[in-house]
Structures are given as structure tokens and as C-alpha cells.
């Protein structure tokens, strides 16, 4: 009922190393869903299986009712992705990048409007290589949203942004969700998860430790903040 992502018993290993052992969760339509975990917990691999970059060894992944591997074209058309370490050609200008990515989708969003929302108005002619770290990050968010996706998967959304830009981005994400877009947020940054996420899956050593709202996680751990809850639930010193 109203779920747009269903992951069941996802398992993925590389050689002998288990990256994701057994992960299951569902994401409802219009939710902001957080995937939290320590480095190497299996967050990125989980997300890569969601967007069709990797084929799971076991388990099923359904995105909008489809298999991201088999129905790659269909899924990529409806899912916008911001990846942690993917760059653009140095000399590609902001406006050109937007036009290029617009050309990939049937009904793209307005580039000018999106750039303005992300604080990149007037930067159309700036080459990617001349942007600051925060501007690069915001452009990559703009490119994730330019295809008017039904689901946006954002990996380390506000890493590298200053507090003002971070808050603006949070407002933008909240606004996009209000427009009916489901958002999957991978983050290390607890205040962000606490502020934005409706529900969170806490992943540790390739398994889902607990799923619930930030309030539930805090209550369950008996801690004052989500950060304290995170440290206490993942057992070791983060």
C-alpha cells in the first residue's frame, strides 16, 4: 500500500567480503527515508543496488514495482540520483550540464528555476572546474532533480556545504517532498537525519539494526539526541 521501494533480504558480497548481508526495508510514497550507518556498514552498496548500478547476489529490490536491473531504462527515468564521488568534465559549464541532463529525460524541470533554488543563479557560464566544493555539490543535486523524478536518491546530501547552504538545501528537499517526490537520504550527519527524515533504517555490518522515526530511535536507545542514539545503537565508539 503506497510503497515505492521494497527491499527484501538483499545480499551482496565482493569476492569474499560481505558488503550487505541481509537488508530489508520499504519506503512509502512521499516519505523522506534515511539510511544511516557507520563507514563500511553497507549503505552505499544498498543504494547502488537500488539505482541499478549493482546486481544483488540474493534478495529482491523493487523500485516503483520494477526491478532496477531488468527495467533499467524505466527505473532510471523516474529516479534521480546524486552520487557521492562522481564529477563532471572540468570545462563543462553549469548551463551546459543542465541542458545535457535535461536532454536525457522526457519532461525535464526548468533549469533556471532549479539553479535559483540551489543558489546557482547566474552561474550558467561557469565551468564545473571553477566551482567551489559546495557549488559542485549543489549542481549535482540540481542534476538529480532535473528529470522531475518520482524518487530522489541523495548520497551525502550536504557534505561540504556551509550551514546556510545546508539549511537552504534542507528547505529545498522539504519543498520537493511536498510536491510528492519520495526521497532516500544516505547520511552521516545526524542533525540532518533528525530534521528531515520521517523514518530511518540504521544499518550496521550489512544488516538493518532498527527502523523507525527519529523519535522512536531516540526513545528506544534512551538517549537525548539521534547522534547519541546512533552511537549507542551501533554499539561501538563512532
Amino acid at each position: 500500500m503506497g510503497s515505492v521501494i521494497e527491499v527484501e533480504h538483499l545480499h551482496k558480497s565482493y569476492g569474499g567480503t560481505v558488503a550487505v548481508d541481509d537488508v530489508s526495508f520499504t519506503v512509502g510514497q512521499g516519505e523522506i527515508f534515511g539510511i544511516l550507518g557507520r563507514n563500511g556498514a553497507g549503505k552505499t552498496t544498498t543504494v547502488e543496488c537500488l539505482v541499478g548500478l549493482r546486481r544483488p547476489d540474493r534478495g529482491t529490490v523493487r523500485v516503483l514495482g520494477r526491478d532496477p536491473q531488468r527495467d533499467h531504462a524505466e527505473v532510471t527515468r523516474r529516479v534521480g540520483v546524486q552520487l557521492q564521488d562522481s564529477q563532471l568534465p572540468e570545462r563543462l559549464r553549469v548551463g551546459e550540464a543542465m541542458r545535457l541532463y535535461q536532454s536525457f529525460y522526457p519532461e525535464p524541470a526548468d533549469s533556471r528555476e532549479l539553479l535559483a533554488q540551489l543558489g546557482l543563479a547566474g552561474r550558467e557560464r561557469t565551468p564545473y572546474g571553477k566551482l567551489s566544493g559546495g557549488q559542485k555539490q549543489r549542481l549535482s543535486i540540481a542534476l538529480a532533480l532535473v528529470g522531475r523524478p518520482r524518487i530522489a536518491v541523495l548520497d551525502e546530501l550536504t557534505t561540504g556545504l556551509d550551514p546556510h547552504a545546508r539549511r537552504d538545501t534542507w528547505d529545498l528537499i522539504a519543498g520537493i517532498r511536498a510536491g510528492g517526490v519520495t526521497i532516500v537520504l544516505v547520511t552521516h550527519f545526524m542533525p540532518e537525519a533528525e530534521r528531515l527524515c520521517d523514518r530511518i533504517a540504521l544499518i550496521d555490518a550489512g544488516r538493518v539494526l532498527v527502523t523507525g522515526s527519529p523519535g522512536e530511535l531516540i526513545a528506544r536507545a534512551g538517549q537525548p539526541t539521534l547522534e547519541d542514539a546512533f552511537v549507542s545503537l551501533t554499539g561501538r565508539n563512532a
Binding site: V51, G52, L53, H72, A73, T76, R77, V79, V81, L83, D85, S86, Q87, L88, P89, Y101, F104, Y105, L143, G147
Partner: peptide
Amino acid sequence: EKGVLRRLRTTPVG
């Protein structure tokens, strides 16, 4: 190396 191709794999164009 820069992940340009990886990013494109997540678009309909590939």
C-alpha cells in the same frame, strides 16, 4: 576515473 560514466549509468541515456 572521475565517475562521469558511473553517474551516466543512473540516467536513461547510459
